[in-house]
Design a protein around this nucleic acid. Sequence first.
RNA 1: GCCCCUGUAGUUAAAUGGAUAUAACUGCGGACUUCUAAGCCGUUAUUGCAGGUUCGAUUCCUGCCGGGGGCACCA
Length: 571
Amino acid sequence: MKGQIEKIIKEVLKSLNIEDVNFSIEHPEDFKNGDYSTNVAMICAKQLKTNPRELAEKIVVELRNLISPPAKGEVGGGLIEKVETAGPGFINFYLSREFFTESVGSILSKGEDWGKNDNGGNKKVIVEYSSPNIAKPFTVGHLRSTIIGDSIARVLTFSGFDVVRDNHLGDWGTQFGKLIIAINKWGNLDEIEKSETPIKLLVDLYVKFHDEAEKDGALEDEARAAFAKLEKKDKEAIDIWKRCIEISKKEFDRIYKKLQITPFDTMYGESFFEDKMAVVIDDVKEKNIGKESEGAFIVEFAEEKNLSPLLLLKKDGSSLYALRDLAADKWRKKEYGDNIKIINEVGAEQTEYFRQIFETEAMLGYFKKGDRVHIAHGLYRFAEGKMSTRKGNVIWLEDIINEAEKRAGDINEETKEVVAIGALKFNDLKRDSLRDILFNWEEILNIKGDSGTYLQYTAVRANSILNKAKDFRLETINSKLEPIPAEVTDLEKYLYQFPEVVEYSYESLQPHHIATYLTKLASEFNTFYGNTQILKDENKYMSYHLDLIKAFTQTMKNGLWLLGIEIPERM
RNA sequence: GCCCCUGUAGUUAAAUGGAUAUAACUGCGGACUUCUAAGCCGUUAUUGCAGGUUCGAUUCCUGCCGGGGGCACCA
């Protein structure tokens, strides 16, 4: 419908000899201003230096000619009831009863495909998210990336993309030098493997390393040397490293299962790209964009880019994160094809790092601008200060999930888990991801009002009505006289907007628009059906209401799927 | 010091340059005793400050103030 309105406006502009302009079509917040509204007259008035209201009137006259007589199959298909001007020069479109009835029917016939946007398909995109570090805690920070990344991957899939979900495990780097030193000095891997909480023991060692390193500066050099040994495939170092990976992977699998995350397609760790780095160095040298500086190998940027240099190799010759990332991206292009897009869902603290990487990849000719995207999320902040694994003050995901389940109340185990995870996810997905969040138990585990629980509960209640309705014999009800009320409910006025919301979410790569929309939709449902009994013998509109509720539950189901939130059987 | 992000009811958020800035939480008040009460209804704003662009600015630009992050061998 939005496309049709755009089309007829363009036709009118042409007939009035007005140049094509960039106007917008949107939904007014208040339905008394119509279902769609355009600012085209105000935009054009600026160029033509005329009164916007007068121009709007002129355009409306032409529009009316186009949409009337409202025969089916004509422009607008008789689905636009009226067009009016309002306010400073808005042109408002009011849709007809018929349009809303047809859209409910269309939702029911599309079912699971309702809201899907077809972008032609065969567009491959890698979404890299979660990316926890081996032998480190899976914390709220990784939780954000996991939840937002999973949802973005779902939105892209829903929008017709061929999505590769990649978990870029942090399984390489100087941190493993530190861990190897710590294990050799103070730990016992056999005991750690047998423990109930192996990761916690590894983190304890990591924390101890940093405590000791503050007293003894030589430890840092020892760690770098240990990592250098690892990069040279020293047998003892490799053995410790492999055992740590096994411990961590087991833990991650458990967490992802608990979080009800779509399984990853690939889990190449950074180490996988170890033997793919040399070609990148060759490319850098060939393009002549690298240089040696204080023993390290770096890439420098043009002054106007306002970027600090990017380090690829340390003075001891071992690799840095950036080089492994470049190697990964080059490899991916070879593996998945030249048209691949790559999206990294990573914390905002790495925004400038990604600017460096994208700039370098452009200079190397790996990717053009727009094919590499960084979706940044704000940090969880704590009233007490910054959270740091090195210092050992972290909040474990495990504790959060346990606390969430405790707050979900005294219900059966399965429902409790679905509600707890839903509340956690919704808290991350209800807001623009870029902003920081002050960590607060009440907030992240909210199950009241604007929450995942509210959406789940509303969906469950709607399903419950549909289930009860099966016992009702519809033929006994006098539904033939007036099967559909003349007045259109607000619920119908929101329902048909779902595909537009999904599209907008895809364009901005921000799932919170879906979360906001679903809350509004659920609230409209509750406003009406929270007070009105539908299943009554004398309800002559029963079949209309049941169709509407079905369309509502289908929309909630698809919408919540995009957020990765499950709907329990009952609550 | 330089660079990036951010600032909206008491609190947490929403708002694609548009119309009377939208919700939720908390507080107080209320309805029904009904298909699930984790629900429904009522009750709060100088959008950090000062300018600018615009018919129109929470949104774009400039300056200032507050908060967060980054800036050489961590990831």
